[in-house]
Design a protein around this nucleic acid. Structure first.
Lengths: 196, 196
DNA sequence: TGTAGCATGTAAGCCGTTACATGATTGA
DNA sequence: TCAATCATGTAACGGCTTACATGCTACA
């Protein structure tokens, strides 16, 4: 189906180590490593509640194409499941090769330094070009968005604390909350400074 | 959400407002808005010392292609300058149309919520798959990288404080330092928690 | 003499998004 | 019955990176 030429690379080993996948593929594989068998749609929900906060939440179309790629590489197994009506849903589960590949990626490759696409900071850099009021408005909007985000993430953290399966996801969620708190402090300090 | 702008596509006017440029183009235009006439190479240096910390530092090839695009849209002027030897260098300067376009972008479009590509957090999420030692090592490496980054950024901030031209860049740089400090605190807290 | 920095580009290709298509089920 | 949600994809394309190409200058 979608196996085009990408899977016909010069080394056709599927059981691991050799082919480098995009990080998002490892991220999705990682979500599957928590054990549940998920459909593309469910994986999207899951990534919206996790990856969104410190990676990017892939579009549905990308979820499907990455799942296709993982299948091509033999890192996940798929299964047709009957839905509520007459429809069938494809569900995916990580297999041993996938776990090995994921572990291999984690231990052999280095984590890159995080990349921030911070358009609020970018716009603040250029604040000499606009009137002070609009800069203030932008920062206040950002402050409100931070409040929303924090609420969303706090709710997620609430649902996984005390569940040993999600010990590390809980660390990451707490990390996100700390980050949002730090952003809020900075934004407020800048707002104060601007009014002088 | 913001797709109302999409309908204003097909007008090929070059003097502004109508054509949406990629954010990186506005970022580079923004760097030129500080007044200096720069070559592509110098713009790369400049972006490495500014955009790098809260946006991405574009590759040389992208700098050149964005400059070409800005030129096509009439937002910058270019000039051939004799270099030290027999070579000539093309220098670019923002013009009035460019300033207007940049101001228009700043006031009419909304800042998106920042996107993080945090592979350290992503890997921490999956820490259940690897041995505790390698997680600890990763976090320590990140802590060291943060120290380096902070040093780099502190040096840059040092060079622009008390220069009124760079008032807003100084805010942004301080923002970056706050962010690195918050990251350090979090990383250390997690390292402590892991040893329990 | 050779390497690092200055300086400018082209070509190929991947990652990821938006737009387009399709259709079933559930609840207001 | 109409909208929202579930569910799965294809096509087109934009942004950005890497690799490739070229050649000069300064300096150790």
């Amino acid at each position: 189906m979608n196996s085009t030429v990408a899977s016909m690379r010069q080394d056709p080993d599927s059981t691991g180590s050799g082919t480098r996948l995009p990080t998002t593929a490892y991220a999705l594989l990682g979500l599957l490593s928590f054990g549940r068998e998920l459909s593309g749609y469910e994986l999207k929900q899951f990534s919206d509640s996790t990856l969104r906060f410190y990676w990017s939440s892939p579009a549905m179309s990308q979820i499907y194409s990455e799942l296709g790629r993982l299948l091509d590489h033999g890192l996940v197994d798929s299964r047709e499941v009957d839905g509520p009506g007459s429809r069938t849903t494809t569900k995916y589960r990580i297999n041993d090769a996938g776990l090995a590949e994921l572990r291999g990626w984690l231990v052999t490759s280095e984590a890159e330094f995080p990349v921030l696409k911070h358009s609020v900071a970018l716009r603040l850099l250029l604040a000499h070009l606009v009137d002070p009021g609009s800069v203030e408005a932008m920062l206040k909007t950002y402050d409100e968005q931070l409040t929303e985000r924090r609420r969303d993430l706090a709710a997620i953290l609430d649902g996984i604390t005390d569940d040993e399966t999600f010990r590390f996801p809980a660390y990451v969620a707490q990390w996100g909350l700390d980050y949002y708190a730090a952003e809020k402090r900075t934004v407020r300090r800048i707002l104060r400074d601007l009014n002088e």
